[in-house]
Computed example of a mutant assay.
Amino acid sequence: MAVSGQRRRPVVALYERIADAVHDGTYPPGSTLPSEPRLAAELGVSRPALREALLLLQEDGLLSVRRGVGRTVNDRPPRRGFEHVQPLEELIGVGAPLRVRALLRTVEEPTDFTTQHLLAPARAELRFWESVLTGEGTAAALSHEWAAADELLDRVHPEFARALRATEADTPTEADIPARADTPARAVVAGRGPASSMLSVLLGASRETALSARSGITATLLGRRRGEQLGRPADTPAVLVTQVVRVGQVPVLAAKHMLPTGAPALPVLQSH
């Protein structure tokens, strides 16, 4: 689903609730949705918001309107997966993808964020990639990406596990230059040459594997460290985009992307 950044987030969330109900069989193919008043009451939302979400679902091919019947679920609703997931460097690149500059490639224990979104046990070891996305010499975004633990990836998406290992093996390093005070001893501090985002690696390894993703967006300030990395004052307003990518019901990648004011526009907000 491609939703304009100008659309209200509650409508996007409502779209997702109904789309999830379609894909989990609550509203199976060929079934008719409840009437607008009844559906709005069941979901606890206003009818204008519901109507907008339903129109988006029609545009995206999940629903059809049948005269005298109402809104029905299409017999073959479009599969949510690979075609909806796009690396941020391509999504916000104007005319051409942004350049990914690797800052850090390391392994770390789960944080609150990764425990929640990757369902990682406390003692797991997760790959963490920190990158700056640049365009025309200007830092446009800071990306933090985590992959699920190797043992899980080897089971649910071995191609992604192998691609991550191969990518890290080929990454130029400057291990004698500390990236930050809390960098583990085994961290790889990346050089300044071109690199790939973790999501780009995942997509390249998923040509035979269907993916689905969910994204969220909030307003925030950069803060001191992220401001230094992006060459902006600490109090610069920014947009924080979070993303979780799954294979089936299993999360394999979680990410946070920080876009400061003045960065290239985010024309499409993916929320799958």
Rank of each mutant, 00 (worst) to 15 (best):
V65R: 13
G93H: 07
T236A: 05
L63D: 00
L39P: 01
V241W: 08
P251L: 03
A19S: 13
T261C: 09
T167E: 09
L240F: 09
T114N: 04
R123D: 13
R246A: 07
P158H: 05
G223D: 10
S131R: 09
D182W: 13
R246G: 03
G135D: 03
H157N: 12
P172I: 04
I92G: 02
A254P: 04
R162W: 07
L50F: 03
P28I: 06
V201A: 00
L55W: 08
S131Y: 08
L164G: 01
V247D: 03
A210N: 10
Y27G: 00
V45S: 02
F82V: 06
M258E: 11
S196K: 06
G30P: 06
E36Q: 09
E59Q: 15
V11W: 05
V250E: 11
I18P: 02
A163V: 01
T167Y: 14
A149P: 07
R80H: 08
W129N: 15
L142Q: 03
L202Q: 00
V22Y: 03
S206G: 01
L153P: 00
L55H: 11
S64N: 13
L88T: 03
D20I: 00
L88R: 02
G135I: 00
A124Y: 06
S4F: 09
S215G: 15
V12N: 02
L203M: 04
L55R: 10
Q249F: 09
A265Q: 11
G135V: 03
E174F: 12
L63M: 06
E52T: 10
R155N: 12
R162S: 12
P267N: 12
Y27K: 06
L211N: 04
T134C: 12
D75R: 13
V94N: 14
